[in-house]
Amino acid sequence: MSFPLVRNRRLRTSQAMRNLVRENTVTRHDLIYPIFVTHGTGIKEEISSMPGVYHFSIDTLEAEIREVTELGIQAVLLFGVPETKDAHGSSAYDPNGIVQEATRRIKEWNPELLVVADTCLCQFTDHGHCGVVHYNESKKRADVLNDESLALLVKTAVSQAEAGADIIAPSNMMDGFVYAIRQGLDEAGFDHVPIMSYSVKYASSFYGPFRDAAHSTPQFGDRKTYQMDPANGREAIREADADVAEGADMLMVKPAMAYMDIIRTLRDRYDLPIVAYNVSAEYSMVKAAALQGWIDEKSVVLETMVGFKRAGVDLIITYFAKDIVRWLNN
């Protein structure tokens, strides 16, 4: 059957009609809000490349957590900017490290707020890489060692869980990281703590503002030997298959906007929750265009979030989380 018997516009005649037949919606329960915490006191410094996003010291963090709580956002993702760095990123797994301390305080302020701890070393190493670096004399190059890095990542995850983190989110892209962290958490008595794996993380150009925020730009080379080639799609299945087999509880795709085909691939293949990370440059580009008056920020952001849901996402990590909830409430 076709026109004139079939008229698709019948279901678009009013806002109420469109609401009735809407296939995908975004709610506050879909959102995870990233926060950058740092040492010191009285610090609330806007990140120049990410308007509206700040570095918080522990004492100023409380007001931010109160605002998040009042908006009804149920989860935050913590990134730490440490006071000191070294070759092995020891402050990442220090029981008194910045992420651990922030987690404990958040749990005092709001025990019900889910704390997701980013589990990586890049913000904490003086070389800016996500693992242990060894200079290969014969090849005249520095290599990121996989298995040696796993041991430090396990220590980091366990220390974060001990501090009260509800979800461990490893972002390092070392081979076997989910298995190692799952085994480490279980042995330490944290078998109830889920792993939100950065399963499909590309060596993307969309991370620039984040590296400013986290002070994690590599001091040499790049991360292409462990993060994925943006040209590859089938490789995403291999990465996700490995994480599922190793015990991942959620699978993340990062970045999101340029990789919606990958989100759909994972959605069609797995029944685990799928997470999209709406990354820093995706945020900053929209903010910059909105500040110039070239786009309507609210409309563009909400359309993008619905696009993520339509592609198959269950959870969205986004710096727009607070704005989205305000817009939805209005």
Rank of each mutant, 00 (worst) to 15 (best):
V253Y: 12
G184Q: 02
S280A: 02
A117I: 03
W109V: 11
P230Y: 09
T265H: 08
A165W: 07
V313E: 09
D229C: 04
K322A: 06
W294P: 00
Y277H: 05
N110A: 05
V300E: 03
A63L: 11
R310H: 11
Q74M: 09
K139I: 06
Q15G: 14
L121N: 07
E67P: 12
H39T: 13
A311Y: 03
A169K: 06
A245Q: 06
V115W: 08
I65H: 06
S2T: 12
Y179F: 14
Y283G: 04
P82T: 00
T304N: 14
Q123N: 12
D94Q: 03
E64I: 00
K201Y: 11
L121S: 09
T38W: 10
P82N: 01
D268N: 14
A157D: 03
G233M: 14
D147A: 02
L291K: 14
G40T: 04
L153N: 00
D86V: 04
Y54T: 02
F206S: 08
V200S: 09
I295M: 03
L78N: 00
T265K: 13
L20C: 13
G42T: 02
D241I: 00
R211L: 07
D243W: 04
S90V: 03
Y259A: 11
V193W: 00
R105I: 02
N24T: 14
N146D: 00
Y198R: 14
A151L: 10
A321Q: 00
K107H: 01
Y283N: 05
I32R: 06
L77I: 10
S149H: 14
I65G: 09
Y202A: 13
I168H: 02
I274K: 05
A161G: 01
G80L: 10
V6Y: 11
S204W: 10
L315V: 11
E108C: 12
K44Y: 08
V132I: 15
A117T: 01
N330K: 10
G80V: 07
M174Y: 04
N146R: 04
Y179P: 07
E67S: 15
E46H: 07
P255Y: 06
M1Q: 09
R223I: 08
P255S: 06
V21R: 13
V193M: 00
H88E: 13
T13N: 15
R10Y: 11
V275E: 00
I168Y: 02
A203Q: 09
N8M: 07
E64G: 02
